[in-house]
Nucleic acid binder design. Structure first.
Lengths: 212, 212
DNA sequence: GTATGTGAACCACTTCACAGCA
DNA sequence: TGCTGTGAAGTGGTTCACATAC
């Protein structure tokens, strides 16, 4: 096993990949860590060090080949394949997530949707039939689905997460306002705009308008 | 000025506050850093150290009074007042954000919505009339609005962010897939489910199903 | 007895600075 | 000459461990 790579590094790689994809669309062939860093608000040394965990992708005196580096990052991150996902919770938020246009172009696809409300089960959401949440495990038994999205109320979220884990899901995108408890081999990322707002207001709260 | 408080600490306070609010609803009076830490997946020392930046809120031998500590955190974070926000970008995503039920209970309210598309300007979204994005600055001149939400395509996002900054916004919740450039006194938090997924797939990508 | 608050020790990540290569 | 790759140095955040207070 290679030396452990810090999680912060892994979190930055998709940001680099996104910037490189933009540069590629703009027709750029080469980019230096300097320039990439300026665009992303990151130091050039940070970028070089991060990349050095995985290989030597640059050329001294020139920089990085945009297409090559992007391909390497996509390989590292597992973006060269498509990923199927299940969504649990088909309320207002869940419906918005199903309809979110940002997933498909990046190879992420919601293939099953579940809910616990009998009123909703059986209904159709963007071409998918809502299944009862109790069927999660059996529905996933034969399909290779490693990603779950949780969009249920906080009170039910840990239960749903337990079910996803039991069904073999290894990555969870959690929109519920809870700190999920999961085994070490399961990864969770929280999407919570309220937490983001609450930490920003700390800095804003007592900025008075400057006296003219 | 007190010694600078690390940003990671500020990011954790809302998580503590959320857990305390739950404990309070459950009728709990007192909680130890130990117990809180277990619920949140954080070490007790971390919690005590974080809180010590702001005061001495606990009682030795007992722990923290739930209501008291929650009130302190709300004070620290600026959650004792309501916050008005503007949203820019009234596409599918923007509409979902306007309709998101999680903001209001926490005191965050979208009071103005803007778009650049003449087809959309003038239409009604959840009781708000969509205004042209060029009116941002004048519309905000007299209102005290320090938070902006960006839900426009990546290609337009930096422009919109520049306009928000020019209009005096100090905190930006950014749903667009770009690394925003802002002055030091403006705070940005990105909400990007795709980045979250892309970093998780790194860990999941080559886990083969264990041989039975 | 029990749990906080906090310097000190530790650890992890970031930045430096330069050798090495194109 | 220009920019990468990387050990070494530096910085910042976390955890320890214990004096202190209830």
């Amino acid at each position: 096993m290679p030396i452990a790579i810090p999680e912060v590094v892994i979190d930055r790689l998709p940001v680099y990949a996104r910037a490189l994809a933009l540069l590629e669309r703009q027709g750029r062939d080469v980019v230096s860590s300097q320039e990439l860093g300026e665009q992303l608000g990151v130091t050039p040394a940070q970028i070089r060090k991060d990349l050095s965990y995985f290989g030597r992708f640059g050329k001294q005196g020139r920089g990085y080949n945009v297409g090559r580096l992007l391909a390497e990052l996509r390989q590292i991150l597992g973006l060269t394949r498509d990923w199927s996902m299940v969504l649990v919770g088909v309320g207002r938020l869940g419906r918005a997530i199903v309809g979110y246009a940002g997933f498909a172009p990046q190879g992420y696809r919601i293939v099953e949707v579940f809910d616990s409300d009998p009123e909703i089960v059986g209904s159709n959401v963007d071409g998918l039939t809502v299944k009862p949440v109790d069927d999660l495990e059996s529905a996933l038994r034969d399909q290779k689905i490693e990603i779950g999205i949780v969009a249920v109320p906080g009170a039910n979220a840990q239960d749903v997460i337990d079910k996803l884990v039991a069904a073999g899901v290894k990555a969870i995108l959690n929109y519920a306002p809870i700190a999920a408890q999961v085994p070490l081999d399961v990864h969770v990322k929280d999407i919570d705009p309220v937490l983001a707002l609450q930490s920003m207001t700390f800095y804003v709260k007592d900025q008075t308008s400057p006296a003219k």
